[in-house]
Design a protein around this nucleic acid. Structure first.
Lengths: 234, 234
DNA sequence: AAGCCTTTGTGAACGCACGCACAAAGTCGG
DNA sequence: CCGACTTTGTGCGTGCGTTCACAAAGGCTT
């Protein structure tokens, strides 16, 4: 049941690039707040967030007009406005599926709880892992996936399962009502319309670094002949 | 009449957006190769990688003209060309600094070794962790950072340390000769020109999902009054 | 050998995002 | 109360990235 809200004064069409930066601003603002800073200019906040100040102002202007000319932005107020826009003023129940090394790291990551994300369910298929207690939660068997997700009203799932199992698990969580997925498995997931998937691929990041690293060292090493050697040697 | 310029067939200015997708294509190609597929069309490969086929072709055209019209691309050959462009035909020594939950997960991640990345050094400041053996490597004390990085010829470092320590560790690895950094700490790192930093922030991804999730549910919950309640309650 | 069919590689149009630069708007000192 | 100063919010030009659509190019069949 998708209820379309009326087009109010606030522009609901926030650019994706802006959305991706709001969490960065939010973190910078929290750091400033801890230091007791009350107001901050776009210049200062932009420096703290590592972006251009004009970009910061334009990003914030998409949320509304929350600054004071000649002064800047009130830190606490801006924190609240960004949090609300991102949906962090409400609690989100999150399930983690797959509790290998990575899943455990995610389950114990403090950065989630402090931002309105509550780990509500941990699920795994391995009998050796089921029953473990991690961060005060017991790992359930994946057979209970549908039940747990429904009971806890979970709409966000984190997948830290092997690549071979990812699509199957994805299908199951979607069928259970999950509409947002954070995928750590190195596969392209197929999902129905209306379901969001974000992918984090650790090895891709390293490969991008390697590309630039190679450039600094003077471009791709050899030319054509290397390929023949490479396939020959196998 | 699009005669290639004197710059040679290969264009060295590959767009950043393309570079970011090459690893995705590479993974799809590996999957196809395992299945014994010999040639693949841009349409098929694009579907496997989850992108538009025109985009795929344009991306590949930046590397050179490696397809055959009417047939497609030879899988093995394309794997080699992309690997070479990304710099994966050589081995890269990588150091991981910080071996908490996340660092351990990264050290044990199989996706690295299979792509030319060799974990050469594990470093941590915690005496309780130093000396542990992870994946056949012993965790060294961070005091040896400079020595280890120099000796192993490490140019890529992965930072999985607490936010409070990140900048200091960053400065040290850079001073030791590292020119590429993969940062998992939730801070904006400052580095000299010529050093590349890529940031992976787990909580940011969840926040972006929350934003879209909230939209599906019907836009930001309340308006002005909520803020007053929120600050009042502190 | 010739024509048909498939698929690549790319010119061109479009849309988004970035950053400059400035007017509008508000503060603060006198 | 006024004028100078500071900082926001944004119009606009520019450049990058995406997508469409098609001519060129190669294989395959007859």
């Amino acid at each position: 049941m998708t209820r379309r809200s009326t087009l109010g004064a606030r522009n609901r069409g926030i650019p994706e690039a802006t959305v991706a930066r709001l969490p960065v601003y939010l973190r910078a603002l929290h750091t400033l707040a801890e230091r007791g800073v009350v107001t901050v200019s776009s210049e200062e906040l932009a420096a703290a967030a590592g972006v251009n100040s004009a970009k910061l102002r334009k990003d914030l202007s998409h949320l509304g007009s929350y600054g004071t000319r000649g002064v800047g932005y009130e830190v606490q107020y801006l924190v609240y406005q960004i949090s609300r826009e991102l949906g962090l003023t409400q609690d989100w129940s999150v399930a983690i599926v797959g509790l290998g090394n990575l899943g455990r790291a995610l389950a114990g990551y403090g950065g989630f709880a402090s931002r309105g994300f509550r780990m509500s369910a941990l699920l795994d298929a391995d009998p050796a892992i089921v029953g473990d207690r991690i961060n005060g939660l017991t790992v359930e068997h994946i057979d209970k996936l549908e039940q747990v997700i429904t009971d806890c009203g979970i709409s966000i799932a984190v997948l830290a399962v092997p690549a071979s199992a990812a699509q199957a698990v994805c299908d199951r969580v979607v069928a259970s009502g999950v509409t947002s997925i954070l995928n750590f498995a190195p596969v392209v997931l197929t999902v129905p319309d209306g379901v969001d998937v974000r992918k984090v691929d650790l090895s891709i990041e390293l490969q991008i670094l390697a590309f630039h690293e190679q450039r600094k060292a003077g471009g791709p090493g050899g030319v054509e002949q290397e390929y023949l050697e490479a396939v020959d040697g196998s």
